[in-house]
Structures are given as structure tokens and as C-alpha cells.
Design a protein around this nucleic acid. Structure first.
Length: 800
RNA sequence: GCCGCGGUGGUGGAAUUGGCAGACACGCAGGACUUAAAAUCCUGUGGCCUCAAAAGCCAUGAGGGUUCGAGUCCCUCCCGCGGCACCA
């Protein structure tokens, strides 16, 4: 009688696999539905409870869609290239391929033990040469379309790992992997010109169903701002300093300029700078600092005047000093700013410190006390005096255009994507460097460029990839002139493989294309993609970029890859802190499944709190899910009756169907489970539960607790899987109540309630209300009533 | 410093979007069953007041405001979490 979950769960997992219940069918006549979860990185630690919560959620949606008659694609794979595996290889000498195989085996077993309805036939692995052949192919298309280029840029450098890091890989001024503080280094890197897609990425957001906060975050990250480019001539020189500003209206108050320490102009004007030694020293110091350190210096701004260099304000024609300061970043905008202390807080602080003039050019504040940063009416601005800021921006920009000193400019915060890594465990970049021809792409028919075996996975001390040490591999022939050439030894970042994996699921074995066109047309776009907020500005934006590019070259049929995007909250440790090994608050899914079974685990994860918010793990809380599970089992064993009827229970069933159906769509899984619990509590109180009612309940339970539902379904004598059943529809007329509880308020405070028939009129309500004992106390006679607010089928509020 | 998300009983959290605050669950207390424990079942469970109940009052981070009515809307502030690129 006792529910033997481990036996029963295994039984049904085998059954599903044997009967291929979750295999998606290409070109089925049913409408298609593509559910996507973020595929895991198979780390050595195994599956995390954070994974399973979001996978359970999407599994519920996938199972519901199948029952609603959709041909569902719910695939799984491995984002297998990455640093932890490489670090592990460095430590142990075991090949990353072997480590990955071991880890994916473990993950696969774990995922299967939870009963997820993945289509395992479409399993992919980004480190598989048959997969990364196409990652390389896409890179070649980027190159051929001028969107992949090499550039010498200041990059974050980890002196310990001896690799270049993208900004997003530097956490708190330290290397993401080893914690060593990073410095700057000039390095030739491959970049992808994502900025060329800034406008498209922005526009694309208009017509897709992403959570608003996700759109906001992407928009902020892309950071479009419309403003003005201004050219400041340098006195006694042919050079000019270009500046981008959104506040051209304040330019008459521009009393100095600031350039980034890395700015080219410093070298160009080297001979003019009197205090070059001092300047050089400052530049060296800035190199040691990360962007974040520069940020921390916020309170105490530093800078050095470039003595001997004067810029000319194109409007006032006055000569103004030029400073270098590390709070201006070289890789944003033009790397130089015009400083208007009267109307910018940061410039005001800087001007006070270095005793620079503060000239008001917008009326409205007291600039001797603080910067006035709002729009207003221009003063001290020559022919522009008296205009509003808005008018002035227009007129002044036109003036600049006329005089060839600048003009309208759109600036994006988004930066091009640094695409090279000096690692072993990544996709080799399929390029060859020929002395005569320069960078030449490897011919497509020679793809994939396979990762060769190496003995040492550590980057060389010069910062080159470990691949650089393999002469036979590096030395190659130029595909163009057949002369001697060297292979690119950098590999791609771990985001490469994940930028297009959703396409490969559609046709995972295709040898000729990344995926068959007709299949792509059938399945794309992804209908619902759920993932973490932390991927919003990296993976999510990158994959949108790749898909948009592939669309432009006609390799995929839709401009946007994902129709709908939602996000999940983190599972915190029992202490309310982020789960981490060092805190010792990590919960292992295996332990929970072993002790409670997959269904209880699934139910608890859905019940523990709102899906989109962080919730702490509660070891006690899972007991509730277990009791719920046991109650269902018990009812299924002893209370089901073919003959009996129960109108009230039927009503509750239909309410529950409605609630659960709607809550799944809004990912309000916690309240959906609560509704199921309410229903079960009611059943539990009954002597008998009519089988018809029970059948529908099992159907709506099945996405949450699939094994238990199958078992109880079979107990009813059913021959086919409950997965093949139709999702029940609720009966509207059964849900409508004849009576409702009407709230009687006096001066907005609830004083009594009344059971009233639906659609009762105000007059009748008032009459009934005044008869209530409690109300009589407050309203001795009708003349005391000043006002009545009546909300039909809800409440009456009597103001006295 | 900036951006985003939050703050509701002892705990996780509900609240049809401005209409009975605390659904559901955990925990706790009392009781039943048991030699006993576990499991299970029943009852109670925001605070104050009360022997108890009814009634009343207070209560959704703090303080104001709008409204017949505010957890929900507006303003000011405090705290927690996550992200960050002083973005000109």
C-alpha cells in the first residue's frame, strides 16, 4: 500500500522512453510548440537545484502543451566548452574530453531521474566536432561579411591565468576564474561587431514577448543616446579632439576638456606636452587600475593637466586646458569629454578641486553652490542666449554641421564583443595568417578545424593559447596562395556554442548544414524560452545577435530567435544566502530524490515560492509536499468510486482546472500547487471520490507529478499513458456561484458580511444591510447616511 | 554612484490588480491513536484587550498624501538582494 516511489518512478521513466512519448516529430500536422531551457554546463559538481527548478517549470509547460494537442520540441544538450573543465585538466592532466564525458553522463542520469520529458534523441554537445564545425562556419560568415575583425585594443589581462578577459569576465576587478587582480594589456584580438546590430537588437525588442524587466535591461545595456559630435581644434596644431555630448546646449560653459589616459592624442602631441613625465607616470598608474577601481576613486577625482596643450571651444573660440583623468574611459565614445562644471556634477567636483572656472550657461540654479543639471533657458551663450535647452541642441548642432565642426551623432553603450580566448578547451578559430595574404579563412569544406591533442593545457607565459606550442598544427598552408602560413591559436569564448544551439536541436545530425531549411521553417522561432536574469545582457543578447545575422544571410527563417522569454529566481540556501560550496549550504538534488522521490521534489520546487523570485530552500517545507503526495496516493487507493456522484466536488474540480490551467501560463506554479492541495484536502474529507472527477484531477496533476499520475491512471484500468490524454477544460456554468459573500463597509471599514444572490441590486443590498444587527449599531436611522458606494457582486460601503 | 528586483504572522508565501489582509504549506500548542515513540488524524494558531467569547482596536519596512476604501496608486526616507561600464 505504501507508495514505493523509487520503483514506480523508474518504471514510468522506462515506459516513456520505450514508447518514445516525448520525441518531437518534424513536420507533424499538429501545431508545433518549441520549449527551451538554458542547457547546462556539465560541471564536475553535478546538477544544481537551481537547474532543476527551472527545468521542472518548463517541463510542466511542455507536458501541458502536449496534452493540449501540440507537437512539442523540448530538447536538451550540453554547453560543454568552458573554463572549469580546462582548469580541472590543468590540475589533473586528464583530457577535457574525458572529463566532459564523465560529467555529461552524470548529468544525464540526474536529469532522467527527475522525469523531465526531454527529447533525448536530439541531445547535442557544443564540444562535439560535428557541432562546432557549424560554430566555426558561422564565424566564417561573420568574417566574410566584415563583422569579425582583428584589432589591437587595451584588454583586461590576468597575470596569473595569462589570458585576456572580456569585461564581463572580470568580477570586482579580479579575474573571474582565479581571483587575481587584473591589469591592462594591448593584445590583438578577434572581435565581433555586435555594435553594427545595436539598432536591430533594439528594434527587435518591440515585437517580442519578453518580460519587461528583461527588455529594460537589454535596452540599458545597448544604451542608445542621441547627441552631438563636436570637434575641438587643438591650438597651434593640426589635431582635433572629438567629443560626444548629449548636452551641446551647455557648451558655452565648457571650460576644460578631459581625455582618457589611453587616448591617442597624448602620443600625437607628445612633443607639445611640457610635463610629459608626470603625464606618463599617471598613465602607468591608470593601467594598473581596472574600470572598477577607477569607479571607486569617484569621491577623490584625479587628473593631470596636459601642460602646453590647449583646445579651442568652437563656440566661444576661447582656449581651454586639457586634462587626462582615469574616470574617462578610452573604450567608450570618443574617449574624451567636454567638461561643463556648471551643469555636470562630476565636472563641478573636478573643477572645484583643480580650481577651474565655472561658467553658467543654463539659467535655473546657483552654480557657485552646485551643478545645475536640468534643462532650462540659455544664458551667456552668444547668439543662442534665450533659447530653451531643447531648441539650442537643435540649433547648435546645425551650426556645427554648417561649420564642419561636428553634427548629429547616435552613440551606443554597447561595445564590440571580444571573441578571442587564449584557452585550449574552446572552438578553434578557423583562420590562417599568411605573410602575403594576411588573415585568410579556412575553406568551409575543411571544417571543422579540430582541436589537436596537447600535453599541457596551460596557456604559454606570453599569453598565447596552449595550441601555439604545437608546431605541426600551427604551421599550415595559405588556402589562397599555398604559401607558408600559421593557424590562429586562439579559441572562441564559451558563449559561441550557446549562441545558436537552439537551431541545432532542430536538426542535430545534419552534416551538410547547421540545420535543414524546411525543418528550421517548421520549428522556429522558439515559442517559450526560460532562463536566468544573469544571462540577459550576455547570452540572451549574443544569441539574438547571431540569429539576426544568420537571418540577414538567409541561413535562418526568423529575425528573432525567441518569441517569449521569462526568467526564474534563484534557489538560496536554507540560510537565505546564495548556495555555494564554501558556505556549505548546497542542496544536492540526488539526495532529495533518493529520500523523497522525483514527484515530491518537483512539487516542492514549484510550491516553495514565486517562480520568478529568489526563495530559500527549506528542508522542512518539503515534508508538506511529501504529505500531499501521500494523500493523493491514499485517495487513489481507497476512495475512488465508479458509481458515486458529487456536485460540490465537481464544482471545485472545475475551479481547480481553471486555476491550474491559468497559473501554469503565468508561471504562478506555487498557487497552482496550492489549488491542487485544496482540491485534495476536500477529496480527503469525502468518503468517496467519483472516478470521472478523479480522472480529470490526475490529468491536471500529471505535469507536476508525472510518475504518480501515471501509476494512479493505470490503477483505474487505463491502458495508455496519461500523457496522451487531453488537457481538461473547465465548465463555466459550474464555476459560477449563485451566491456570494457581500461585504458591508461603514466608512470604508468592514462591519459585516452577507450571503447574497449574484446580481443583487443596490437598493436591495442596502435594505438587507440595514437589517443586520451589527450595522444597526452604527446606523440607527437612514438619515445618517451621507453617501453609498456600491460595487456590484462585491461590496457596499455606507458613508455616515 | 547608477540600474533592476524586493521588504506582508514564528517561517515560505496568498491576495481575481484599488474592495473581507494572511489562501496554501511549514512550524508550534492542545487532543486522539500507541506501553511509548514515529507516522497519521482532529482542533487551535498575527498582535492588543478578555477567564473565555462577542464586539472593538492595532497591523503589510518608516513617515506623509490621494481615495468612500491602499499591501496595491503618488511623494520622501530606511533596509536587503542582484547587476554594473563614473556612459558624458
Amino acid at each position: 500500500m505504501k507508495y514505493n516511489f523509487s520503483k514506480i518512478e523508474k518504471k514510468w521513466q522506462k515506459y516513456w522512453e520505450k514508447h518514445k512519448l516525448f520525441e518531437a516529430k518534424d513536420f507533424s500536422k499538429k501545431p508545433k510548440y518549441y520549449c527551451l531551457i538554458e542547457f547546462p554546463y556539465p560541471s564536475g559538481d553535478g546538477l544544481h537545484v537551481g537547474h532543476t527548478r527551472s527545468y521542472t517549470a518548463m517541463d510542466i509547460i511542455a507536458r501541458k502543451r502536449r496534452m493540449e494537442g501540440y507537437n512539442v520540441l523540448f530538447p536538451i544538450g550540453w554547453d560543454a566548452f568552458g573554463l572549469p573543465t580546462e582548469n580541472y585538466a590543468i590540475k589533473t592532466g586528464i583530457h577535457p574530453k574525458i572529463v566532459t564525458k564523465k560529467n555529461t553522463n552524470k548529468f544525464r542520469k540526474q536529469l532522467k531521474s527527475l522525469g523531465f520529458s526531454f527529447d533525448w534523441k536530439r541531445e547535442i554537445n557544443t564540444s562535439d566536432p560535428d557541432y562546432y564545425k557549424w560554430t566555426q562556419w558561422i564565424f566564417l560568415q561573420f568574417f566574410k561579411h566584415g563583422l569579425a575583425y582583428k584589432s589591437k585594443i587595451p584588454i583586461n589581462w590576468c597575470p596569473s591565468c595569462k589570458i585576456g578577459l572580456a569585461n564581463e569576465e572580470v568580477i570586482n576587478n579580479k579575474c573571474e576564474r582565479c581571483g587575481t587582480p587584473t591589469t591592462k594589456k594591448e593584445k590583438e584580438q578577434w572581435l565581433l561587431a555586435i555594435t553594427k546590430y545595436a539598432e536591430k537588437l533594439l528594434q527587435g525588442l518591440e515585437n517580442i514577448d519578453y518580460l519587461e524587466k528583461i527588455k529594460i535591461q537589454q535596452r540599458n545595456w545597448i544604451g542608445k543616446s542621441e547627441g552631438t559630435l563636436v570637434k575641438f581644434p587643438i591650438a597651434d596644431s593640426q589635431k582635433i579632439l572629438e567629443v560626444f555630448t548629449t548636452r551641446i546646449d551647455t557648451i558655452f560653459g565648457c571650460t576644460y576638456m578631459v581625455v582618457a589616459p589611453e587616448h591617442q592624442i597624448i602620443n600625437d602631441l607628445k612633443s607639445n606636452i611640457i610635463n610629459f613625465e608626470e603625464v606618463e607616470k599617471y598613465i602607468e598608474e591608470a593601467k594598473q587600475k581596472s574600470d572598477l577601481q577607477r569607479t571607486e576613486l569617484n569621491k577623490e577625482k584625479t587628473g593631470i593637466e596636459l601642460k602646453g596643450v590647449k583646445a579651442i571651444n568652437p563656440f566661444t573660440k576661447k582656449q581651454i586646458p586639457v586634462f587626462i583623468a582615469d574616470y574617462v574611459l578610452a573604450n567608450y565614445g570618443t574617449g574624451a569629454v567636454m567638461a561643463v562644471p556648471a551643469h555636470d556634477i562630476r565636472d563641478w567636483d573636478f573643477a572645484k578641486k583643480y580650481n577651474l572656472p565655472i561658467i553658467e550657461s543654463i539659467k535655473g540654479g546657483d552654480v557657485s553652490k552646485q551643478a545645475f543639471t536640468e534643462d532650462g533657458i540659455l544664458v551667456n551663450s552668444g547668439e543662442f542666449t534665450g533659447l530653451t535647452s531643447k531648441q539650442a541642441r537643435q540649433k547648435m548642432t546645425e551650426w556645427l554641421e554648417k561649420n564642419n565642426l561636428g553634427g548629429r551623432m547616435i552613440q551606443y553603450h554597447l561595445r564590440d564583443w571580444i571573441f578571442s580566448r587564449q584557452h585550449y578547451w574552446g572552438e578553434p578559430i578557423p583562420m590562417v595568417n599568411c605573410e602575403k595574404c594576411g588573415w585568410v579563412p579556412v575553406p568551409e569544406k575543411e571544417l571543422p578545424v579540430k582541436l589537436p591533442n596537447v600535453k599541457n593545457y596551460k596557456p604559454t607565459d606570453s599569453g598565447e593559447s596552449p595550441l601555439a606550442a604545437i608546431d605541426w598544427w600551427v604551421n599550415s598552408k595559405c588556402p589562397k596562395c599555398k604559401g607558408p602560413a600559421k593557424r590562429e591559436t586562439d579559441t572562441m569564448p564559451n558563449w559561441a556554442g550557446s549562441s545558436w544551439y537552439f537551431l541545432r536541436y532542430i536538426d542535430p545530425k545534419n552534416k551538410k548544414q547547421l540545420a535543414d531549411n524546411k525543418k528550421l521553417k517548421y520549428w522556429m522561432p522558439v515559442d517559450w524560452y526560460n532562463g536566468g536574469m544573469e544571462h540577459t545582457t550576455l547570452h540572451l543578447l549574443y544569441s539574438r545577435f547571431w540569429n539576426q545575422f544568420l537571418y540577414d544571410i538567409k541561413a535562418v527563417p526568423t529575425p528573432e530567435p525567441y518569441k517569449k522569454r521569462t526568467s526564474h529566481g534563484m534557489i538560496l540556501g536554507a540560510d537565505g544566502e546564495k548556495m555555494s560550496k564554501s558556505r556549505g549550504n548546497v542542496v544536492n538534488p540526488d539526495d532529495v530524490v533518493k529520500q523523497y522521490g522525483a514527484d515530491t521534489y518537483r512539487l516542492y520546487q514549484m510550491f516553495m515560492g514565486p517562480f520568478d523570485q529568489a526563495t530559500p530552500w527549506d528542508t522542512k517545507g518539503i515534508e508538506g509536499a511529501k504529505r500531499f503526495n501521500n494523500k493523493i496516493w491514499l485517495i487513489g487507493q481507497i476512495k475512488i468510486s465508479k458509481k458515486s456522484q458529487n456536485k460540490e466536488l465537481e464544482k471545485l474540480l472545475h475551479k481547480t482546472i481553471k486555476k491550474v490551467s491559468e497559473d501554469i501560463e503565468t508561471m504562478s506554479f506555487n498557487t497552482a500547487v496550492a489549488a491542487l492541495m485544496i482540491f485534495i484536502n476536500e477529496c480527503y474529507a469525502q468518503k468517496e471520490v467519483p472516478q470521472k472527477i478523479w480522472e480529470d484531477f490526475l490529468k491536471i496533476l500529471s505535469p507536476f507529478a508525472p510518475h504518480l499520475s501515471e501509476e494512479l491512471w493505470q490503477k483505474l484500468g487505463k491502458k495508455k499513458s496519461i500523457c496522451l490524454e487531453q488537457w481538461p477544460k473547465y465548465n463555466k456554468s459550474l464555476i459560477q456561484e449563485g451566491n456570494f459573500t457581500l461585504v458591508i463597509q461603514i466608512n470604508g471599514k468592514t462591519r459585516d458580511t452577507l450571503l447574497a444572490p449574484i446580481n443583487i441590486t443596490q437598493d436591495l443590498v442596502l435594505e438587507l444591510a440595514l437589517k443586520q444587527e451589527n450595522i444597526k449599531k452604527y446606523i440607527p436611522d437612514k438619515s445618517a447616511i451621507k453617501k453609498i458606494i456600491f460595487v456590484p457582486n462585491k461590496l457596499i460601503n455606507i458613508v455616515i
